[in-house]
Amino acid sequence: MFYVKTLEHEIVLQPSHFGPKLKPTIIRLLKEEVEGLALAEYGFVVNVIEVPEDQIKSGIIEYDTGDVVFSVKYTALLLRPFVNEVLDAVVSQCNTLGFFAYVGPLRVFVSKHSMPEDMLNGWNTDKDSWVSDDKEVIISSGCGVRLRIKGRTVEQGNITAIGTIKDSYLGLVSEEDDEE
């Protein structure tokens, strides 16, 4: 789920950046550094919404390098997956074990065990897709699916999740051609 939170980040600036445009530079660098980052306890930073300029405190000069460290507070839009949360995702890749789907930056794997019973043996090699027994549901790369997050890990600065489409009203919500 998305939420807005105030976070803090340290920006290291070289002396060459000092000048009238110091604060815009700090904001630009902050966005560059922080957006797209996965913070273990907060989730993905989707967007830096606001960097109040008055919150940028005067920096501290490092003895060794002459660089200045600014501690910046900013509000950011975060995406954090919660267990049991229901999300819409786009399928990126199907394989014999299940499929991978993306909710923005978040990768979710849905195992074949987490599919409805009528799709459990529905792997189709020719089409690289999961097909239900009545052939009505075809999940292939590019489809939109609604899934429930079952588990979540943080590994090497990246958050990944496990999902299920077994419960009612979960599963394929839009076909390949649709624009998500």
């Binding site: 299940g98 195992s111 065990h113 987490s114 997050i149 079952k150 588990g151 890990t153 990944t160 496990i162």
Partner: peptide, 14 residues
């Protein structure tokens, strides 16, 4: 049955 990213794909336990 399967682990992805150190997580069980069925129950989500790490």
């Amino acid at each position: 049955p399967t682990f992805v990213d150190g997580m069980c794909v069925v129950c989500g336990t790490t």
